[in-house]
Amino acid sequence: MQELVTSTWWIFCFRWLHIMSGIMWIGHLWYFNFVQTPSMPKIPQEQKPAITKFIAPAALFWFRWGAMATIVTGLILAGWSGFLWGAITLGIGEHNSHDTTIGFGMWLGTIMWFNVWVLIWPNQKKVLGIVSAQPDEVKRAARVAGLASRVNTMLSIPMLYAMAGATHFSF
């Protein structure tokens, strides 16, 4: 048993948790952008509250906490594995393709995490009526949250390339 619980095992464990929470996060991000947002105009007015009062708040809960769990497990994983600083500095001058590639993924993921907690969630609270706001403020909040969500969808494509490519498709 003692041989099983090594630092290699803990690193694996955090990588496993990091992948699961990452799927929880990006899965919901893609649900919002590929399913919910394009469907909203087609839903009859009297049925919209099913989305805005029940489904969207629950999806946003798992979305934002998935983002938090992903960055926390990712930073622990990088620190424990010894490549945190190399990745933050994009491996410049190191000629280390792993650190450079994962570093791009980490920076993109960090921008996306910022968008979730600073731009999307505070504005979505106004849009969904979780906090009160004037109608023009709600309109502006919907625009900011929507654009930040689209930026994250765009960034998720290179981010996932970098995360998977660092180990499985290095130069």
Binding site: T101, F104, L147, R150, I157
Partner: peptide, 30 residues
């Protein structure tokens, strides 16, 4: 001019374009 991020298709295309740019940058650094 319309914001390309208002279109889901254009958002995805931009994501792939950014991926190519990123790969070129990685290649230049490594």
């Amino acid at each position: 001019m319309k914001n390309p991020l208002d279109s889901l298709q254009q958002t995805v295309v931009l994501g792939f374009v950014l991926t190519v740019v990123m790969v070129l940058l990685i290649h230049a650094i490594v």
